[in-house]
């Protein structure tokens, strides 16, 4: 990112290559809609590009990146548009393909079981308060450290640990039958 700030446009492409998927995946888990997630992810990188001249490496780049992503995701959710734009797992896309890419090594039965399990996991995470949900997604799926999560969520490290403890406890209770 420092090279991008100094005018190296090719480095922006490298950043995009490295962080495109994690940002889209994170936003998809927040907003539950692939098209919206990609649109928001583009907005994230657009803001990164706009701010390139003023960038100062005071924290890890991923921390800054996910902070932008989280704010955009939370704003989109708070706008109240999440209900009608949710991807339903049993809906098909316009080209007839299912939302989740099926594992072709699974039988139909196993695929149904997998889809049911996935639905339960998504609903369990969805049921968490927004900050707990964000903490779980950043910790579990993006593998950020506690300090990074604290920076993204604008809270202390001890608050992050508390959020994660309560979130995982809720999820363990809700998904205990999957053990």
């Amino acid at each position: 990112m420092v090279r991008v700030r100094d005018g190296d446009q090719a480095s922006f492409g490298l950043l995009l290559e490295k962080h495109r998927s994690p940002v889209v995946h994170f936003l998809h888990r927040m907003v539950h809609n692939r098209a919206v997630a990609e649109e928001l992810a583009q907005e994230v990188f657009l803001r990164v590009y706009r701010s390139r001249e003023n960038y100062e490496p005071t924290a890890k780049f991923t921390t800054w990146l996910f902070r932008i992503a989280m704010h955009l995701g939370l704003n989109w959710i708070r706008d109240g548009r999440n209900e009608k734009f949710h991807d339903r797992l049993d809906d098909e896309t316009s080209d007839g393909a299912s939302k989740q890419v099926p594992d072709r090594s699974r039988t139909v039965e196993l695929e149904l079981v997998y889809q049911a399990k996935l639905r339960e996991v998504r609903q369990a995470i969805e049921s968490l308060p927004s900050k707990q949900r964000a903490a779980v997604m950043l910790h579990k799926y993006e593998e950020l450290e506690y300090t990074q999560i604290a920076n993204v969520l604008s809270c202390s490290e001890s608050a992050v640990k508390s959020l994660l403890y309560r979130a995982y406890e809720s999820l363990r209770t809700r998904l205990a039958h999957m053990a």
Partner: peptide, 8 residues
């Protein structure tokens, strides 16, 4: 269980 929610 959380691993079931893979990336799109």
């Amino acid at each position: 269980a959380l691993d079931a929610w893979g990336p799109v």
